[in-house]
Amino acid sequence: MKHVTKIVMYLFFGIVWSQENPTIMRGGYDKVLKGKDKIFQKNVASHVKKWHGAGQWNQFGWRVETGPRTGQYFIGTFNHYWKDFDERVTTKEHDNDWDRITNAYIDQDNEYAGSTFWSLLPEISYNSKSSTKIAVTFFYCEANAYQAMLGIMGKLRQANEKAKIDVSYNVYQIEAGGSNDVIAIVIQMDGYADMAPISPSLKDRYVAAFGEEVWLADYTTWTNGEKWSETEIMTFLPDISSPASE
């Protein structure tokens, strides 16, 4: 019961924190026309330098390295309140420049095109840091298991803290623009070497924190609640991204 109470408190205070802090991000995938990557990046870099610098509306870019979206770009803006998207004011010059880039270099025949909103869940994320690569796993969940799976992520954070494990990740939940009940775990990496198994294993950390019985119950909940998942690795592109905040 003590563990259950602690998880409930984690989630409750996390919800309060999220309401009072900017946790909303919006992003989408862009498929660049064949042979246009270099000039696309050059034009986006110029655009970002002029309109998305320090103190301006942030914009960050990654290039997808694995999976069906390999070669595409993920462009997103982070750390917003919902109202920011109502109150944002752009100039005609800005909008025309982005339209020019989109019309000249983006392949409109892209089944993965479209914008999605996500919210960061800092209360169940762990040891977040900046990184040169990320491994993003999307978990598509059964509706009746979704909240329980978020609770399991809260327990995993506690297990990681107890083990003092050297990993870093953020947890997001989808808000709009795609399938409902989706969790995204974004592992922050310095390179592909961080894909290697680590010790102690996830199971060993979980058992050490909560015991074998809880591990077996939560493992069953997770595996039964997961419809499917997919992972893609992305490389951060600082030249087409806003400068990091101080």
Rank of each mutant, 00 (worst) to 15 (best):
Y10G: 03
H47L: 15
Y206Q: 03
A196C: 02
D95T: 14
S201W: 02
T223L: 04
T102P: 11
D239H: 13
F12C: 10
V32Y: 02
L120W: 04
I183R: 03
T231G: 11
N103H: 08
I174D: 11
A54M: 08
K31F: 05
N160D: 14
I124M: 08
W228M: 13
S128T: 11
H47Y: 12
E161P: 01
Y172T: 00
T102D: 09
V182P: 15
V16G: 09
T223P: 02
S168E: 06
Q173Y: 08
V32L: 01
N43W: 14
V171N: 00
K31R: 09
V44Q: 04
Q59E: 14
A45I: 14
T231K: 03
Q173P: 04
G154D: 11
E230K: 00
I24F: 11
V89I: 05
D190R: 01
S119T: 14
N170I: 01
G154C: 12
K34D: 07
I106W: 03
A196Y: 08
S46Y: 01
W51A: 08
A104Q: 12
H52S: 10
Q56S: 13
W215K: 15
K31G: 08
F74L: 11
S179A: 09
W228N: 13
R88D: 07
N180K: 09
I39C: 03
N103W: 08
N79T: 12
K155N: 06
H47R: 15
G53A: 15
S130D: 07
K83M: 04
T91C: 05
I152P: 05
D84C: 07
I39W: 13
K42Y: 14
E230H: 00
V48A: 15
G14M: 08
R205K: 06
M25V: 07
S229E: 11
N180I: 10
G61N: 09
K42A: 15
V48T: 15
Q59T: 15
G76T: 12
F60T: 06
K164M: 13
C141E: 00
I75K: 00
L33M: 03
D218F: 05
K203H: 05
F139G: 00
A104V: 14
M149P: 12
R26K: 12
T221W: 10
D30A: 04
Y73R: 02
I15Q: 04
K92N: 12
S242R: 01
T23C: 09
F85D: 02
N224A: 11
W118V: 15
Q188V: 04
K227T: 10
D37E: 10
G154R: 13
A145C: 09
Y73L: 07
D239L: 02
I152D: 11
S18M: 09
P238V: 15
E213P: 09
M9F: 03
G35Y: 15
G151R: 03
E87F: 01
M149F: 04
L156R: 13
R63E: 01
V186C: 02
Y219K: 14
I101P: 10
E175H: 11
Y169S: 05
V182E: 08
I165Y: 10
G114H: 07
Y112K: 01
S130Q: 06
T231D: 02
T102C: 08
A208L: 10
K164E: 13
G178K: 09
S130R: 11
G154T: 02
G177H: 12
A244L: 13
M153P: 05
G114S: 03
K6Y: 06
A54N: 10
D190T: 06
V4T: 00
